[in-house]
């Protein structure tokens, strides 16, 4: 199936880099159940890195949005099936990424403009990862629209350490 490309001009949309070009993969993930024994990808969009995404992309509209710390997808084995399926996603590292002020603005835009339905923040149990939840909460406070936020903490051993409404 041909991927749907679009060139939504979000504020931080870089030039013509293919790595940052918006792609809507929703139809593909819906159709592709994958061969038995292999876990199919549940990613419904490209890009996913928070600096690269445009909040105006159609797959963010009214979506249940997962805001995942980079490491969570590696630590949690069932990440695709449990957290990506049927949802939109952005990833970021609150410890190492530059330009985190623009993360807060972009998250605010996802709440206000994309009108996301819910936010699920996935962080690792290490203390420095909590910054991602703080960033989301800051964006939520700045936003005029309110939205439910759930915080899920993944352990280094690959288990869910906690799951609660923030």
């Amino acid at each position: 199936m041909e991927k749907k490309h679009s060139s939504h001009g979000g504020k931080h949309e870089p030039c013509g880099c293919p790595g940052a070009q918006t792609m809507d993969l929703r139809e593909e993930t819906a159709a592709d159940a994958g061969p038995a024994g292999k876990a199919p990808s549940m990613l419904r969009q490209w890009p996913v890195q928070l600096h690269l995404v445009s909040p105006m992309a159609p797959y963010f509209q009214k979506a249940d949005l997962v805001v995942a710390a980079d490491c969570t997808a590696f630590a949690y084995g069932n990440f695709h099936a449990e957290f990506l399926k049927g949802r939109a996603a952005v990833i970021a590292c609150p410890k190492l990424d530059d330009g985190q002020e623009s993360y807060v603005e972009k998250l605010q835009s996802l709440i206000e403009d994309a009108k996301v339905n819910t936010l699920t923040v996935l962080t690792m149990e290490v203390p420095c990862c909590g910054g991602l939840l703080a960033m989301v909460q800051q964006a939520a406070r700045n936003a005029k629209r309110k939205v439910p936020i759930k915080s899920i903490v993944v352990g280094i051993g690959g288990t869910i350490k906690s799951e609660e409404w923030a």
């Binding site: 339905n117 819910t118 439910p148």
Partner: peptide, 10 residues
């Protein structure tokens, strides 16, 4: 479901 929780909230 998570989706329904968001919908209810709205």
């Amino acid at each position: 479901s998570l989706n329904q929780v968001g919908e209810l909230f709205g």
